[in-house]
Amino acid sequence: MMGRSLVAGLLLSVSAQMVAAETPVLTVYAPDYFASEWGPGPGIEAAFEARCGCDLQYKTGELLPRILLEGERTEADVAIGFNTDITKKARDSGMFAPHGLDTSALTLPVDWNDDVFLPFNYGHTAFIYDNTKVENPPESFDALLNAPDDLRLVIQDPRSSISGLALVLWVQAVYGDKAEEVWTKLAPKIVTVTKGWSESYGLFTDGEADMVLSYTTSPAYHIVAEEDLTKSAAIFPEGHYFMVELAAKLAGTDNPELADQFMAFILTEEFQSMIPTSNWSLPAALPKEKWPEQFQQLPLPEKVLFYTEDEAAALRDTAIAAWRNALSQ
């Protein structure tokens, strides 16, 4: 029975490829959220297909593990949705090629001159709270540390979640060697730690926590999609950790022209203006005056903290150990 469906699948794929021979296919690997019906993927697909006369197909799932497992055999032409925290591993694999684009149009709050990984959106880590329930939201990271222990926080695990990892790097960037003390102060306020962002955010909207580790742009979803003004990001003068998502072209792509065309498309205004209200983050190459009104009005940090991939790779184990030691007490 299994064999039969596998064979059927094989036949289907062969016939699909025969039909597709007329229209070239650009295969883009993306995280699941990106390509889902509720992410930016479908809009980007439609816009790109209108330009390229090709068929853009997403393949979703764990991005880097999948490409590394597939190795030379990978079908991917482009991969979109990397975070800086894992680009070192990706770069060292040698599977990605320079994009060859002029990145001077980028509007990131940090300097960016990576010739392989191209940013397409960014945001910052931030604690989100309900401004009708939290009366005295902390106005700095120090204030958060010294807040009464009945302020309930929910965060993500740095060992299983990118945003959780960004948080421990954030603490590392602000407090350096004192990170473990900081975590000891935070520990009584941390209600729980979840595997990923979704679980945390679900706990927060269900009222299990007063503040949740999320992004500075999270309130925009509630404002734009739900006309709900009650969610705010606590902005800290110590700075917020920068989170950027990246795309890269596969070195072994058999559609280099299409892949290049897609990489160039990422920097266009058409692509960039789709980011805010479908990815709920900030576009990487669009001046602020072209952002949607509600995004322009979002409070954003003045100081942005960021580790390069080498620094992040070197600090990661220390930062996670500080977190684990303090929270395991």
Binding site: D32, Y33, S36, E37, Y58, E199, W280
Partner: peptide, 20 residues
């Protein structure tokens, strides 16, 4: 293994949560 088109119901629950 997944691609965009073969999502099962539990996966859709996670996708909806993942997009607020």
């Amino acid at each position: 293994f997944a691609d965009g088109e073969h999502a099962t119901l539990p996966l859709q629950v996670y996708r909806l949560m993942g997009s607020y």
